[in-house]
Nucleic acid binder design. Sequence first.
DNA 1: AATAGCGTTGTAAGCGTTTGCAATTAGTTA
DNA 2: TAACTAATTGCAAACGCTTACAACGCTATT
Lengths: 335, 335
Amino acid sequence: MQKKGSATIYDVANRVGVSLATVSRVVNGNSNVRDSTKRKVLDAIEELGYHPNAVARGLASKKTTTIGVVMPDMTDMYYSELARGIDDVANMYHYDVLLTNTDEDPVRETMAINNLASKQVDGIIFMGNELDREVLNKITSADAPVVLAGSVDAEGRLPSVNINYVDAVDEAVTMMIKNGHERVALVTGPMSHAINKLHRLEGYKSALEKANIPYDESLLFVAHQDYDAGLKIAEKILDSSANAVVAYDDEVALGIMNYMIDQGKNIPEDFEIITANNTKFAIVTRPQLTSIRQPKYDIGAVSMRMLTKLMNNEMIDETQVQLPHTIERRGTTIN
Amino acid sequence: MQKKGSATIYDVANRVGVSLATVSRVVNGNSNVRDSTKRKVLDAIEELGYHPNAVARGLASKKTTTIGVVMPDMTDMYYSELARGIDDVANMYHYDVLLTNTDEDPVRETMAINNLASKQVDGIIFMGNELDREVLNKITSADAPVVLAGSVDAEGRLPSVNINYVDAVDEAVTMMIKNGHERVALVTGPMSHAINKLHRLEGYKSALEKANIPYDESLLFVAHQDYDAGLKIAEKILDSSANAVVAYDDEVALGIMNYMIDQGKNIPEDFEIITANNTKFAIVTRPQLTSIRQPKYDIGAVSMRMLTKLMNNEMIDETQVQLPHTIERRGTTIN
DNA sequence: AATAGCGTTGTAAGCGTTTGCAATTAGTTA
DNA sequence: TAACTAATTGCAAACGCTTACAACGCTATT
């Protein structure tokens, strides 16, 4: 019954008159220990207020029951919802989450991975669009398994969970075309990111092609993912004479919408918008935004579930998971 | 030059022909090491790709350079912005962040605290409105220092960082009164939370008192912090014949606003709204929401800074910090 | 040239667990 | 009841690092 530093396994063993090993066994719910002794140990634990020291445990067992989550920005609703899915499943499997924001800076991403490795995390979930070559090397050489959530690996080597971005954009653009638009603008992030260049843009082109509409580069816009960027790009979109847009981020879409409204446009009659993340932003505005619906929470949850399997060396049927998406029709499109 | 489990400090020592202690010293930037040996050690570290094992370090030094952050919900923009401030400052001081969502469930809050304690975190930042008695005991008995961020401790014992909620609400209500409203509704969270009962409500009453307006309980509304709750409560607010409202949460405020608009009200001419968190939600809508402006990021950052001092046993001038707030006038109020 | 003193390095005892292996005890079977 | 198997326990060596404390070699002093 000491004051500081709380009791250790040693104290418990002493109290009961058994060995460390026995206490360790009951603490870990381990098999072979007689009921009567188990009870005695449990009592002593209770009385002493013993709590196992996870650090010591980690050293001895080489497992920390901690995973690392590397994400661009937790205040971005898209990512925070992914992370929430991750966290819930992690807790379910008794893992703790070490969180790092990187703002998609490759330097910080690399530092984060290194740091997590030195903290001996059992696994890592990585989010972010850009996957720098150096980061990727770090990741693959880390002893801990890694899964990409809502991110693509250009070379398709790492386990990942996302939606089919090509199809999603294709469907959105096709819907706009069906609604009678020949000039549909596409707003994405920088082309240096595989997800934009290889997925979103491809989906866009594919939709045009199917409709026999020639690809017009002047309808392609690049914007950062925030409201002001949307406001800014909107002007150019208007100049391009596009009267429909598919945007990759809700805040950007909102910026565009509000700009259009300020210019006297009626939404959706004069100008149609489809956004892509379906966050709360899409719902709280008037009109509400038609959006590609990604199962964000589920992407996180499934990634985490996959990671638990990886950490247990369980067999995994498919490491490149694509979850279903739909288009949620709301007020910024006619149909 | 081994394959697995990467090099240990022992390998480095062997390579150079010095003792563990010496390697440890250079790794920790410790004082007394001759330059020449330091260089040799550094080279060996480089060649072997040695990275210190933080778990072992934690066991030996009893410091994990990890802090715990306990929060209601990371997808709630208010909290995620606080957390971002925490995370940035934590990184600045080389701490990692172990994140836990509790949904304000006292059971989960208690579990989180226990768990963090067993993981030997060096400190904890706690967010959330309700501070259950049991949780509080856990917290105060934990060996790690704790600071409350954006939360109040009814008994004012724990270090905390927030704004003056009483004044903030007082000012908002006073502003509404000056705008000519006699019947100003207040929407808060459950009265079981000190922040609502002891702070927001008091601010509300104080404003009424100064204006010689009797307190009318039928103008007090309780709602969960989400958009639908706002939509729902709005109907009752309309029935109460209030024509101005001060709400404690942006999503709720948005729900109220949209409902009013649907009922044909003109905002702000027919109905005025002031919200309290000034998240992005307040900006992306039309009209934009007038809001109490809390320095959310700073609350997080300052909490974390305070925690670093506490962890270093540095003297702290004031453990109950109140950061300044203002009212950001936008489109849902006349002035 | 002997001594004190300082900067540098090594020794070894932890830190609190886990875990393979050996030892002990209990339970069966003949 | 002896012999044998299975169930319980204890032993002690890791795990990778930090940190008193001791020891060493030098230079500076007298």
